[in-house]
Design a protein around this nucleic acid. Structure first.
Lengths: 255, 255
DNA sequence: CGCTAGATTGACGACAGTCAACATTGGTGG
DNA sequence: CCACCAATGTTGACTGTCGTCAATCTAGCG
């Protein structure tokens, strides 16, 4: 069933977040999953705070996060804007779809495991299995939808609402890959890194978090988020999960 | 050479902005252009301030802007965030790539002409002509890159810089479709609409524009922008056109 | 035990929002 | 041709959210 130490069903285990992510959009069979798993040429561990993908560089590979957290970053002068958080199951960048490199870099926030998949092999597979193609395009579309929601965040929400929105989003996304409990999840971010995503200063993030904590809505401490009152949190954020394209709330397959 | 009153080479003329847009990323031959033009089933005129695409609705067609300006919009409570401006040659939304509707609506800013292309026909063409597929994916990738740049705008630029950035971007994009002169272009936006894109209040947009005018960098008045000092404007914005993926500065074909 | 990264606090200032009045423009109809 | 109207642009006064700076606290770690 496998072709070497790197391929086959053992890979399915490691790739689970990615497969779960894809399967949450388009139904994929055993064969599809195995097909994808076999494309993985390399799994590597990357230490905290390392660049996974460089800004203007071209590579023939797609990188998929298997464990840990990363983010896409754009830099202006010497300040950074985090344009998205990448969680297990996410594709580092979708530039592989178009053969040109946009100007974002991807940076590991925690220690991260990534799988490499050669673009060509993936393209071939997509041609044979349109369902897989569709799943990948869906993932990419949702990526854009998240970007749009973040613009709303930056453009018209207050600090409170921004923080609340982000935690609602991350909760929903982490649920998909089974990395969130019913009201808590691990999130190895510093307050500074939250600020870089939310367009807020570290100090203000701190105060906002304190306020939410005091009101017993959300506690975020030492890398762990506890959503005491998801209802209220969603209210504050005016959160509508629609944009995440989660049709089925909790896929149980392969759990 | 044509198959009816709606198809064939006459369409090439009207579709020129779209074709120029595609061709600026991937080289396309006469045959490709004709192939695309023949897919157009309908061209309609849409009055100012009309919704072109509704939020959560699915349609089997791609809509392309032929003339006029539009924008994508997300709404929070009763305030709007413009997530992108659409200019002639742009595709209203890329949801056709994934078979699921994100939650943005598209709204005509000025009177607009749009061409409709059935998704299926386009998909078929893409399969026969991978170059066209690649061009479409490139366009979609640049769309994402613009979104990321707007996040930088909202997240870490000041009002001045935001305005400057936006005008730099629009200038560059309008150049591609031959809608900008050497230092001026038409832009039928109100200051309020600028504010909705930039995350600024109308009043503040007004003051910022005044300041840029006073400093003889940029004049924006009654729907026309004049870039008196593009150099300085780009400096203020810290503008780097790289993200727009413009390899060749001024394509002259079919001009 | 001291070091460092991260979190927290306080004081202060500034950029941008809000409100409300007023001016200008362009379009419409008498 | 002018009067009127609505939409857009402009201005001033005031407010508030949030940024900056800098000091202090805390916890993990060698």
């Amino acid at each position: 069933m496998q072709q070497g130490p790197q391929n086959g069903s053992t890979e399915i285990g490691r790739l689970r977040p990615f497969l779960a992510n894809l399967a949450s959009h388009v139904h994929l069979g055993e064969a599809d999953l195995r097909g994808i798993a076999q494309l993985v040429t390399e799994c590597r561990k990357v230490p905290q705070r390392t660049e996974l993908v460089q800004g203007k560089q071209q590579s023939g590979e797609v990188q998929v996060i298997l464990s840990g957290f990363a983010c896409r970053i754009k830099t202006l002068h010497d300040r950074r804007q985090i344009t998205s958080y990448l969680i297990p199951g996410d594709i580092c960048d979708h530039r592989y779809l178009a053969d040109r490199a946009p100007d974002q870099s991807v940076c590991a926030i925690s220690a991260v495991e990534v799988a490499h998949i050669p673009v060509e092999a993936l393209t071939d597979l997509c041609e044979r299995q349109p369902r897989i193609m569709r799943a990948l395009l869906r993932v990419s579309a949702i990526d854009s939808a998240i970007a749009a929601e973040w613009m709303v965040n930056l453009g018209l929400r207050t600090a409170q609402q921004r923080v609340a929105q982000l935690f609602c989003e991350l909760y929903a996304r982490l649920r998909v890959v089974q990395l969130a409990g019913s009201q808590a999840f691990d999130l190895p971010l510093t307050q500074a890194e939250l600020g870089e995503a939310l367009g807020l200063s570290t100090v203000h993030v701190n105060r906002t978090l304190q306020d939410l904590r005091r009101r017993e809505v959300l506690t975020f401490r030492s890398g762990r988020a506890i959503l005491h009152d998801r209802q209220k949190l969603a209210e504050i954020a005016a959160f509508d999960s629609h944009y995440l394209g989660l049709s089925d709330p909790t896929p149980n397959e392969a759990a």
